[in-house]
Write a protein that binds this DNA or RNA. Sequence first.
DNA 1: CAATATACCTGGATGC
DNA 2: TGCATCCAGGTATATT
Length: 287
Amino acid sequence: MPELPEVEVTRLGLLPAVTGRRVVQLSFSGKDLRFPLDRALLKRFIRGGLIRTVDRRGKYLLFRMRGGAVMVLHLGMSGKLTLAPPDMAPADHDHLRLLLDSGMELRLNDARRFGSVTVWPPAAAGEEEDRFSEKMGVEPFDTAFSPGYLHHRAATRHLPVKNFLMDGRIVAGIGNIYANEILFGAAVHPLCPASSLSMDDWRRIVAAARHILAEAIASGGSTISDFLGTSGNPGYFQLRFAVYDRKDAECRRCGAAIVRIVCGGRATFFCSCCQPLPPGLSSSLPG
DNA sequence: CAATATACCTGGATGC
DNA sequence: TGCATCCAGGTATATT
């Protein structure tokens, strides 16, 4: 379930195993992901190349090669990266495998194939990355993710604040789970029109987002050392969600029952006591 | 420009 | 047991 924390935990777990390693061989399942895999570019610029480091932008992982090429990987809904010994038979849905000079093989497993892998050739990587980054929202841990920025961007947006937070062009990396959790942490009802929030609301949202995402990363971090080698589970299951997937359970703060609604077509959870709708909205919205 | 709908694909859970 | 149905992390694109 890769949102920003899961992608970051994956990156942190991967880093010691791939930095400075050379990609000595590529293997393909034969199936494409969300977009066709560009095998020609992968063979030309990734095979034989040396992985300098791995960065993250939103939910994307950027494998930066010596020489300037970048392999841009997105895990989609079901994608997982694991390291396996090459003599272990590939699992179902292992669509791309990179054999490293360490002897280990990096495997992208993605049952639903909503993930993607693209390559920026060295000569175009700078320009490609500019274009890529410009259309993407700010990073939650960047100072640009501020109450003023959100208030400004939301001024003309009347959609529910939850959908606004999940818009990757506004802020990168927040998906359905963490949008729910952040709004609970900020005591903001998910259906509030984005344009209706006060600066103080945005202040609480910024603080809650940073706090919850950092906690999630730290919680995944506790099992970083073995999640790649064994189950593939990055450890986020240990998170104690406050509202997500807790319909009818007791709110940890006030004891009221957590409510589930559908908002923007996605399951949405909140505490009707801790996250009240502003007066005047309750009559116009479904309960 | 903003909002909504839809498409992509598979597997697990649930219901009959 | 089998089969149909619904639901799930995300995002690019098309349509109102």
